[in-house]
Design a protein around this nucleic acid. Structure first.
Length: 232
DNA sequence: ACCCAGGGTCATA
DNA sequence: TATGACCATGGG
């Protein structure tokens, strides 16, 4: 593959949509909870839950930690899988307690070891871990989500069946950017995907046309396979 | 009435 | 290692 492609796509997206200043959230804790709650659900559903937690003053780790999973579950109902997610939040809080609920303390830990610790928490997989690392702890890890996988598979840089770690390695090795660029890149991929999804065709600015033969960059999974089977 | 959304775990082959 | 079932609400 051509390493320059990852940088060019980033520049194109940045020129079209501008900086996103992610993650939406005021504190590291809010970002981490949001990362858990957004698993396989639209961000809209997460906002409701975040707002509920905030209105009850529970978006503080020490205070939320006083609540049981049974008490947390109804508060995050809108995010779906709420019983499981309540347990995941508790698991995260238990781990966080070991560091006095201090994100400043977490930031001092060596990155690789910190990632391993996050992955050892039941309910936190690679994407959630990397979201927390990048957006809540300012660690340089590229976040690979379903949008990233689909977009770059559609462009032809990956097949789409690669493992998470393979795709992440590809970005780590071939994308030349700072931690702020990592931050923006993932955000821009999500913004672009939502834009395309809304238009049901190309993005509103067609910013990736250089990579797009059929003038269609990304559709949802069903539409995408339809287009690909017709094309090839 | 369907489909999917900023995943992860566990059981099975 | 690699699929499949399961978790469950809300908007299109």
């Amino acid at each position: 593959m051509k390493p320059i492609a990852l940088n060019k796509i980033y520049n194109d997206l940045l020129n079209c949509y501008g900086k996103q200043y992610w993650w939406p959230g005021d504190t590291g804790f809010e970002i981490a909870i949001g990362a858990i709650l957004t698993q396989s659900v639209s961000w809209r559903n997460v906002e409701t839950a975040i707002s509920t937690l905030k209105s009850k003053g529970l978006l503080e780790p020490e205070l939320l930690n006083l609540k049981s999973a049974e008490e947390i579950a109804p508060l995050i109902r809108s995010t779906g899988y709420y019983n499981q997610k309540a347990k995941k939040v508790k698991n995260f809080l238990n781990w966080l307690h070991g560091y006095n609920f201090s994100f400043d303390c977490l930031k001092k830990i060596e990155s690789s070891g910190l990632r391993d610790e996050l992955l050892s928490i039941n309910g936190i997989g690679p994407e959630t871990a990397d979201s927390i690392l990048l957006y809540a702890l300012s660690k340089q890890f590229f976040v690979i989500d379903a949008y990233t996988r689909r977009l770059f598979a559609r462009i032809g840089i990956i097949s789409g069946t690669e493992r998470y770690s393979e795709i992440q390695d590809l970005f780590h090795k071939n994308f030349n950017g700072t931690i702020q660029d990592y931050n923006e890149y993932h955000a821009l991929i999500v913004i672009h995907a939502k834009d395309v999804c809304k238009k049901r065709s190309i993005c509103s600015k067609c910013c990736l046309k250089d990579f797009c033969k059929a003038n269609i960059i990304y559709l949802d999974d069903s539409a995408r396979s339809e287009k690909i089977s017709k094309k090839d």
